[in-house]
Nucleic acid binder design. Structure first.
Lengths: 211, 211
DNA sequence: GTATGTTCTAAATGATTGTTTGAAATTTAA
DNA sequence: TTAAATTTCAAACAATCATTTAGAACATAC
């Protein structure tokens, strides 16, 4: 067994358990026994539980930022003109799924971890999240804002949070929502079907006019 | 000091602290010392921490369901014809704020508690929430669905979760979002301004067409 | 093969958790 | 006023938590 095996086993078990139960609700004993490693391994390899939480989080958000940045580079150099709202939203989601495919990870898990990070406003995760992906975040937001020059910036900012909420909330409950749908309508939706439904909804949300 | 004072003091302190930090992150000692009551008071009056969490939750969601039901009754008896999407959304939010006014409570606090309840998919709160407001929830959803007869029911259900996500996520972070806005644009939004922005956005989201 | 540095392991540490206890204080009822 | 019932209180309880420790096991390099 190599060194990296232990670290990876811990990260995998921790990702799953954190997403399932929450950070405080998951003890190191639960994680280490699920990962089949010694209790002390977490503190040895990561230093502390808090550092493990950050590591789990970074494993998702790091590759995502890289993918999004690359994708934005590609699209900006290709088409000299401005990007549209819908193409920017498409870029966002395709970057998300591309990064998840690379790290062989679960979209629902990532969304749950994101939701938990926001749920605790006091939490240290918000700060480390801003530090880690603040630049990519800003870049994307500026581009999106440019597609809607007539919208008041404060209004626009609020609508962004509406968008984030719709995405994180629904995708992080993907499994349980699907369970309800299967019980009530006899059919469920694949993740990509949900995203295909989410994208035009977000577009409608960002424009936000009553009809 | 009457008996009910202790119970109320505990509920008030617990609401604030739970919304701020989360359920597991708030100890009974923190709550009781903030409420200025004895540590044993929680177990004496509520039985357990879990029961206190339920009680805090019910204090918000109970009156909200009553208000929403009453409001639906009033509108259905008044106008014989069907309600529109926008009027139903308006009813939802005005019921929310009416119930909060009655219980002299904070909308952001309620939204945070709601978000936390959803964040923990394993959590017992989801079950007790469905039991408590499942009937009102269903009634409202059926009415809303009737306003959009051409939309596939599964699609409609997903859009509802998009709507809930946008609402809960943004309103539960109202303070911190406003902090960012004030820093970046020099002005912030009142809660009712945000809701006025949210309502047409939700309308756009529910119809969900790209433009 | 020996030496060196890394990783693993079982056990213990001290702090914090929710909950219980039994007596004191207080309120209620007669 | 007296008796009964309710509520408060300080203290202790057992369980669990993250973290530390020191030695065993292991790998690597000379």
């Amino acid at each position: 067994m190599k060194q990296s095996d232990t670290i990876e086993k811990i990260l995998n078990a921790a990702s799953e358990l954190f997403a399932e139960r929450g950070y405080s609700e998951t003890s190191l004993r639960t994680i280490t026994s699920a990962a089949d490693v010694n209790l002390a391994a977490v503190n040895y390899h990561f230093g502390s539980k808090r550092a493990l939480i950050k590591a789990v989080f970074s494993r998702y958000i790091g590759p995502f930022c890289v993918c999004l940045n690359d994708s934005l580079d590609a699209h900006q150099s290709k088409s000299g003109d401005e990007l549209s709202v819908d193409s920017l939203i498409n870029i966002l989601f395709s970057s998300l799924f591309e990064s998840l495919k690379i790290s062989n990870a679960n979209p629902e898990q990532f969304m749950r971890l994101l939701g938990l990070a926001y749920a605790q406003s006091q939490g240290f995760l918000r700060h480390s999240m801003i530090e880690e992906y603040g630049a990519t975040y800003s870049r994307y937001m500026v581009l999106l804002k440019e597609t809607m020059p007539n919208v008041d910036p404060v209004d626009f900012y609020w609508r962004l949070f509406f968008m984030m909420g719709a995405t994180i909330f629904s995708l992080s409950s993907y499994e349980s929502i699907n369970g309800i749908l299967k019980a009530d309508f006899g059919r469920d939706s694949s993740m990509s079907e949900v995203v295909d439904l989410l994208i035009p909804s977000i577009s409608g949300l960002l424009h936000g006019t009553s009809r």
